[in-house]
Design a protein around this nucleic acid. Sequence first.
DNA 1: GCCGTTTTCGGCCCGACTGTTTTCAGTCG
Length: 568
Amino acid sequence: MGNREFAALLYEAADLMELQGIDWKPQAYRKAARAIESLERDISDILKQSGRKELQEIPGVGEGIASHIEEFLRSGRVKKFDEVRKSLPPGIGELLELEGLGPKKAALLLKKLRVRGLADLKKALGAGKLRSLEGFGEKSEENLRKALELHERGKERMLLGEALPLAEELLDYLRPHAERLDYAGSLRRMQETIGDIDILAQSGRPSGVMEAFIAFPRVERVLAHGATKSSVLLREGIQVDLRVIPAGSYGAALQYFTGSKEHNVALRAIAAKRGLRLSEYGLFKGEKLLAGRSEEEVYRKLGFPLIPAEMREDRGELAGTKPPELVELRDMRGDLHAHTTFSDGISAVEEMALAAKSKGYEYLAITDHSQAERIARGLSEERLEEQWKELSRVEKRVGIRLLRGAEISIQNDGSLDYPERVLKKLEVTVCSIHSGFKMPKEKMTERILAALDNKYCDILGHPTGRLLNRRAPYEADMQRVFEEAVEERKILELDGHPERLDLSDAHALAARKLGAKFSLSTDSHAAAHLGYMRFAVGQARRGWLTKGDVVNALHLKGLRKVFPRMRD
DNA sequence: GCCGTTTTCGGCCCGACTGTTTTCAGTCG
């Protein structure tokens, strides 16, 4: 533990130093913070097991930051950061969270108007003091007022599951005005949450796309409106940037705006080493354009195959080895986690079966809640048997294999919420934690390990229990959980429900390295939710999973070897 | 503060847009 906390300290220190006019160091801090944040291993483990030298293996971490990490892990604080904090008013960092206000202007506000935080800024705005400052005018006052308002409304990152449909709607709307349209950025990389939506267009009449864009019915405010770039804020609270790109640079621009920033920095460094220059306009040797029309061409000229967008995180995808053949949505043969009206779902068994069938699936596991989940109308033994009759009936009618399954709660002591005589009749079980989230880490870890050791546990459901933007994962030693799962040949779920995406991409990556197998599921509570599979696949691809890592990419025959209680 | 077949010192992405200012600084992505 501690990676996120330490990264947060680095970010804070970077902001404050920038306010003080310190050059470069803030960038270095942020770079290190990003690396530490996305690390699979805990910095405390690294220090304990391998020592300080190993900390410096983290990209962007050198002697200085390594010693700060050591101090932080030892004492929970970093003296140097404390000093920086003390040298500035406590509320000053908040100012930088405002749209359009950066370190230079914030420093000026502090120096000339003694603005020490958001409250001060509000007062200064009210008194009309800002326009007297050099570099400020009426317009900047107005913008700050709006930024302040927006900030107060609270701004969380939007879930992938909300942003993607929104972007698709906008693309459909813009299609008549452009020859080519793509969304780029974190959305294209299928990151679990999205800061803003980036859209690229190629058009013979750029002004036409721009006019249409700012007239999109969901637009609340136009933030910028130029010849090649415009930005709007949608009513849903997310910013959308649109850029119009000429055909000859379209691929380079798509590459550039897809990111990630870290991936691009690494790729540009590789280009630079070869005496080339990569920008959103193309790959250049001197003035000569070598590539730009397509992404593939850009990567090829740099000696790489087309790297899937989901892998572009500078996690080793540019190391030169051939990237793995990532799992695709069309590889999926079934879904192993779905609820029906028997428990807390809103679609009947038959509706679920029909929806699964229409996706071309061979099978669907019906996994309603176990008896203890009263709120979710968990199934008693009798109701479960009733359900099995229904499954047999629908199975014949619809022509899709319905597995007798259950999502079984893992109780506080690690036992499963059905007696053995029931468990052995279930073809597949998803075992999940639904209560007792606040256990100490050691106890929680033991609880999960005990469940994994149960011979009737097949799949560990939403393994960390997190809800994006709402609930932190429970404390558990996930590395040990993954090791045990591999040892006991248990399957890890990658739950594609937009609020869960659990396992996360980083966890999937770590577990895959240990040789784990995965179930990409939707945790559907309605027939339409079966469509969440694309989010599960997106996270799986971010975790470098191949078709071979995913059990429900297997045909029925292969699946039987994974789940021995499955009937013929 | 980090990093290195350009460098152990001197770089560190760079272009679009905005607002305020008559040629540019600040912010953002």
